[in-house]
Design a protein around this nucleic acid. Sequence first.
DNA 1: AAGATTATTTAGATTTGTCTAAACTTTTAA
DNA 2: TTAAAAGTTTAGACAAATCTAAATAATCTT
Lengths: 217, 217
Amino acid sequence: MTLAEENYLKAIYHLENQSSNDVSTNALAEEMQTKASSVTDMIKKLAEKNMVSYIPYQGVSLSKAGRAYAVKVVRKHRLWEVFLLEKLNFSWDEVHDVAEQLEHIKSEKLTDKLDEFLGFPKVDPHGDPIPDKDGNFEKIDKTSLADAKEGSTYLCVGVDDSSNDFLKYLDANHISLGTTIKIIHKEPFDNSVKIKFNNVELVVSENVAKNLFLTAV
Amino acid sequence: MTLAEENYLKAIYHLENQSSNDVSTNALAEEMQTKASSVTDMIKKLAEKNMVSYIPYQGVSLSKAGRAYAVKVVRKHRLWEVFLLEKLNFSWDEVHDVAEQLEHIKSEKLTDKLDEFLGFPKVDPHGDPIPDKDGNFEKIDKTSLADAKEGSTYLCVGVDDSSNDFLKYLDANHISLGTTIKIIHKEPFDNSVKIKFNNVELVVSENVAKNLFLTAV
DNA sequence: AAGATTATTTAGATTTGTCTAAACTTTTAA
DNA sequence: TTAAAAGTTTAGACAAATCTAAATAATCTT
């Protein structure tokens, strides 16, 4: 598997987890920041390698082998994120770009030794589960802040949008994994949410609310 | 710089350190395990980028920028080797292939944080010096076992041939960095050397002797 | 259900890094 | 001091991954 192929598998995996339909060419092009025609070419190659099943005009979905491969890449990505944050003291918004590179290093031994070195972490710094050596992982039950109940208290367990700007926003406002958040008020007019944490009140936009994941306490 | 370009720079750097002449196309082809014509193509590209100076039929040499770049790659390679050996408990012969991949990760922050995490090591597991952030490193004075004086005692500080087979041979015979070695006898007939370390005597071939580096105690 | 719009694929071109085979330099050796 | 050998470069081709533009299929609209 080349670097480009790995990135496509990861992107398909990601999109499959967002809706239960087959992944469309355009959606994949958007995710990969490339053109639809390039996507068609690559999909055909992956289909030849039996990593995806593909019906022209119908979209693409991962085969068993393709999913297993994608999970391995995801495992590596998330392990490296933990390493960068915990061992090298990277900040939340800095880990992603470097992990994007490190996830392609090919050495099962490296991955497993790294896992061990980190103490077999179950989740990464964004709150996403880390698959184990066999590709198994716990589904973490989380609701977005946008879906949270007024008056209830939650724990921040993850973020969806991994853009630097969003992570910097969270850093700047001192929201991180493990922060306890109480929902003070949900404003129906613009779907903004007033929350309270560390004895500070903050109003966040709908956009932020949708990308911040919580679990009930 | 692409991955291929980085590998060429590193190879040229390596060859420049073995003899003071310009690096020939064939030597580079041998080092890169590729064809001379491919080398010529790549050299031209590197010359365009001012990473090497190149005169057709005369060979190639690194420019200042090229050398600085090569040293950065070498720095990363050697830091990762230390990481793999010290933190992840890889064995001597396993580190090289993985470090070959890791050395291409592009993030100055990662390199410097890794350096710090490892305690700013001065040498890698093969006894080669690790350049600091500014590319400076101490020249380590070492003689090969083949050139060592009969009767003298030395410290093992490095290896030249990084082939797996050689490293496995050393592992199997319990020779590692830091091993104290006394030269018992040099056999003029076949240039083999009888050495003593950890109270064990061992005869090594000329080939081994040439690839094992020592420093006087 | 036909035309318009949107989504997708195909055809042909481009870049990177490689190759083989042929041409050309340089070096070696008679 | 030339002819052969060795070393190097050029020309032309190829695979990977991408692009633009054109063609084709699917879906929406009325």
